[in-house]
Amino acid sequence: MPCHNESESLSALYVRAAAVMERIAESWEMVRVNDGSTDDTLVRLPALHREDPTSW
């Protein structure tokens, strides 16, 4: 999933996408890619992974 200047919405995006994926798939993986962001998206991605390493 490309993430360009999405720092403020990364957590909400994960929660919403996970809710859908958990209903339709037994196992799933979300790959997020910092797409040249100028905000702190690149800092937030590993921080979110540390909060819930099983979800990324």
Rank of each mutant, 00 (worst) to 15 (best):
P2C: 05
P2T: 05
P2R: 13
C3A: 15
C3E: 05
N5T: 08
N5D: 12
N5C: 06
E6P: 00
S7H: 07
S7M: 09
S7Y: 14
E8H: 14
S9N: 15
S9K: 12
S9F: 14
S11Y: 14
S11C: 06
A12M: 09
A12E: 11
L13P: 02
L13F: 15
Y14M: 13
A18E: 14
A18W: 08
A19C: 11
V20P: 00
M21R: 04
M21K: 09
R23V: 03
R23K: 15
A25L: 06
A25N: 01
E26V: 08
E26N: 05
S27W: 05
W28H: 09
W28S: 08
W28Y: 15
M30Q: 06
M30I: 11
M30F: 10
R32E: 00
R32G: 00
R32M: 04
R32K: 03
R32S: 00
V33R: 13
V33Y: 12
D35P: 03
G36T: 07
T38F: 12
D39I: 05
D40A: 08
D40F: 02
L42N: 10
L42S: 12
R44W: 00
L45R: 10
P46A: 08
P46K: 07
A47W: 13
L48F: 04
H49D: 04
R50G: 02
R50K: 15
E51I: 04
D52I: 13
P53M: 01
P53R: 08
P53G: 03
P53I: 00
S55M: 08
